[in-house]
Simulated scan of single mutants.
Amino acid sequence: MSFDILTEAKKVFDTEIQELIRLKENLDESFVKAVEILLSCEGKVITTGVGKSGHIAQKIASTLSSTGTPAHFLHPSEALHGDLGVIDYRDVLLAISNSGESPEVISLIPYVKLLKVPIIAITNRKDSTLAKYADVHIFLNVKKEACPLELAPTSSSTASLLVGDALAMVLLQLRGFTKEDFALRHPAGSLGRRLKVVRELYHTGDEVPIVYEETPMTDVIIEMTSKGFGATAVIDKSGKLVGIITDGDLRRFVKNGGDFNTAKAGDVMTKTPKTAKANELAAEALKRMEDHKITVLIVIDDEGKPEGIIHMHDILKAGVL
């Protein structure tokens, strides 16, 4: 008997994809109710499960926590030996069990019901004990595991994970969760560096080169030289940004016959310069620089006034890429 590795691997893909499609097509109001309960939760989401379902529950808790919904995984066996105290009356229990009959998970129900904590169950059996006592039951509707022995949880565990991801992503949007919020929850490692915001890297105060439209160009050049960014912000009398002067603007002005002795900043500046906001991702600011082939951005506040300046080198030095 010949055994083709890739063929068998693709069978696993096909089986799980088909089951996920069925799950998608049969998703109903129970999912909506689950989202509503989670959105109104004043405490945290307690996820639980044993075996493969336990691993999935841990991943779901991690995803929820990192996307704006506080969550904690509770191992049901440990819960029976003291860890039940982690559950508060303001919480929601998200219980995962393929059969809906896992003894360790079922044993939590009386205590959770006593606290009047809502239970959201994810199972593959509508008539299971867990489904019966849950406030909301999300039915996986998995007909076939990808395991050729029909023993190892495969399609069902993937389906449970997908439901958890869907819950987290819908909640993320309903909460108005932003990239900046995500960055605050991932301060370490390469991910944290990529999620740094401009405010963490920009220059402020006396470091920022600023001149008025009426400033003589001889003084503009002194400001640019002393601050060392190769550019300066140009503001009007109200303090709002109206332009920028860069080394390139100086060269173009001279090439076109301009005279620095008589010119003012407003005569040389580039109007409507590219800018950044302090709370945007530094990676986004860097892309704007690359797209427009510039090396600095003036950082403006909500009133359009300069509050800082950021150079491409500041972002690259921070290891944002």
Rank of each mutant, 00 (worst) to 15 (best):
E25I: 07
L27T: 15
L27Q: 13
L27I: 15
L27C: 15
A34Q: 08
L38Q: 02
K44C: 06
V45C: 06
G51L: 04
K52T: 10
K52D: 00
S53V: 11
G54V: 11
H55L: 15
H55V: 13
K59H: 09
S62F: 00
L64Q: 04
L64W: 04
S65Y: 06
S66N: 01
T67N: 11
T69R: 03
T69C: 05
P70Y: 02
P70E: 09
H72P: 03
F73P: 03
H75V: 09
P76L: 00
S77L: 15
E78N: 13
G82Q: 09
L84G: 01
G85E: 08
D91K: 05
D91A: 00
L93A: 09
L94W: 07
A95H: 05
E101V: 10
E104Y: 02
E104T: 08
S107Q: 13
S107P: 02
S107E: 14
I109W: 11
I109K: 07
Y111H: 13
Y111E: 12
K113I: 01
L115Y: 05
L115V: 05
I119M: 02
I119H: 10
T123I: 11
T123P: 10
N124A: 09
R125G: 00
S128I: 01
L130Y: 08
A131L: 06
A131R: 03
A131V: 00
